[in-house]
Simulated assay, not measured.
Amino acid sequence: MTATAPAPRTRPAAVHTPRPAPRRRGNVGGTALTVLTWAIALVFVSPALWMVLTAFKTEGIAQTDPPTLLFQPTLDQFRNVVGSDFMPYVGNSLIATLASTALVLLLGTPAAYALSIRPVKRTKDVLFFFISTKMLPLVAVVVPIYVAAAEVGMLDNIWTLVVLYTAMNLPIAVWMLRSFFLEVPAGVVEAARMEGASLPRVLWSVMLPIMAPGVAATALICMIFSWNEFFFAVNLTASQAATVPVYLVGFITSEGLYWAQLAAAATLASLPIVVIGWTAQRQLVRGLSMGAVK
């Protein structure tokens, strides 16, 4: 009697379950938020766009009511502005802006460094004293400053504006730079100190390269404030040291307002800061976002 071999077992067929269809990225809410964001951005940018558009019009077209949207562009207004005495004003603005920004960084960086690594007992009071100077209305100090500048023969002098712009931007620069210094890991400073580096060496060779984006952001903000400052410039200068904002006021005359030429001059006046900001936008974004995420 022979034993029969058991039948080989067969594996059950694999059951293939259908995969769920991938969800569509985005939804109606996200699309609506994007459209709303673009709409808000266009509202804020529209004055600048209208200024650039008006700069390519003739004076007759610029004065029409309602405004003319379809027209033949012309560069006559830009030629008139460049052909006038526009460049000396630009030169004064460049000197006042670059010199004051350099002084702000030269004075504000060591102050912020000291308040970040070696804070005094009442550091918050010191910082509040710095920023409290920004709360004082400029009109309250213009008369004493005018009298003092007249006594020392510094009226209508570009270096008077350099000193004032430095004092105007130094408080906010100290606040910004201190926050950037605090973001540098303490271990980096301790390692440099253990290697024998002095405090100035740690500042210039270790910390500043790390927080270069923050320094760039601070410098750009100081440049914007100095370039656009009008109150001190219009009250303390006449012809030798007048800046670009003072030049723009010259288009408001008793004969009327020259809209097209004013728009062309304002467009040219905005270009330096726009170009600098566009060139340094990566450093600016990194600098302004330092400390935003812990």
Rank of each mutant, 00 (worst) to 15 (best):
A186Y: 12
F231S: 09
M290W: 06
V189C: 02
T101I: 07
F181W: 04
F86C: 08
V285I: 15
T2L: 11
S270L: 01
A263S: 10
S84Y: 01
L94E: 01
A7G: 12
I131M: 13
T34E: 09
I117V: 14
Q72M: 08
R178I: 09
A32R: 11
R201W: 02
G277K: 03
V45K: 02
S116I: 06
T101V: 12
M51K: 05
G91A: 02
A111D: 00
G291P: 11
G83T: 05
L164G: 05
G153S: 10
F180D: 10
R24Y: 04
I145H: 05
V275D: 02
V202L: 06
V120H: 11
E151G: 04
A149D: 12
T10M: 09
Q240M: 13
P171C: 06
P119W: 00
S132V: 15
T34G: 09
V28E: 06
R9L: 13
L199P: 04
F78S: 03
Q77P: 09
V184M: 02
A260H: 01
T97N: 03
R11M: 12
M207I: 15
V215H: 10
W159V: 12
L288Q: 09
T64E: 08
A260I: 01
V141Q: 03
V275M: 06
A191V: 15
I131E: 05
Y89F: 13
F230T: 12
V285H: 08
R201T: 15
V120L: 12
S198E: 09
Q240C: 08
E151Y: 10
G287R: 01
Q281K: 13
M154L: 15
T109V: 13
E183Q: 15
A149V: 15
L271R: 00
Y165C: 03
V188Q: 01
L53Q: 02
V90W: 00
A99K: 03
G187T: 14
P18Q: 15
T10V: 15
G277A: 07
D125S: 11
A7M: 11
P66E: 04
A62S: 07
S270G: 13
F181N: 08
A102G: 14
A39M: 07
A112T: 02
V246E: 07
V293H: 03
M211L: 14
R19D: 10
T160V: 07
A3N: 14
V293Y: 00
E59M: 05
A242L: 04
L248A: 03
T267I: 02
F130M: 09
I276P: 07
V120W: 12
A266C: 03
L94N: 01
